[in-house]
């Protein structure tokens, strides 16, 4: 009788704990643990987002083409280990 409401509650708690666990990074930034992260589902060589990688070129292109800007900053390292976003 009591287990009915308790189980969903436990599930919610477990979910919260899982999310919290992911949010406690072992790296500098307190994001998810690297062990929790996998591979990009996109095949190598497939077309992806066309990124501008300097603010100057992005501004120039946005003003020229009258397109809005999707701004993102991110590190291409994890704890100083290079070669990964």
């Amino acid at each position: 009788m009591v287990l009915g409401p308790v189980l969903p509650c436990m599930n919610r708690i477990l979910s919260i704990l899982t999310i919290t666990g992911l949010a406690v990074c072992s790296a500098f930034s307190q994001g998810p643990r690297p062990n929790d992260l996998g591979a990009s589902p996109q095949p190598v060589g497939a077309p992806g987002v066309m990124w501008y990688t300097t603010w100057e070129t992005a501004k120039e292109e946005a003003r020229r083409s009258n397109r809005p800007v999707f701004f993102m900053a991110a590190a291409a390292t994890c704890s100083g280990i290079s070669g990964v976003f």
Partner: peptide, 13 residues
């Protein structure tokens, strides 16, 4: 969707 934007990704560090 990104093709209608100028997408810029700066290296944070």
């Amino acid at each position: 969707a990104s093709r209608n934007y100028v997408c810029v990704r700066l290296e944070s560090y």
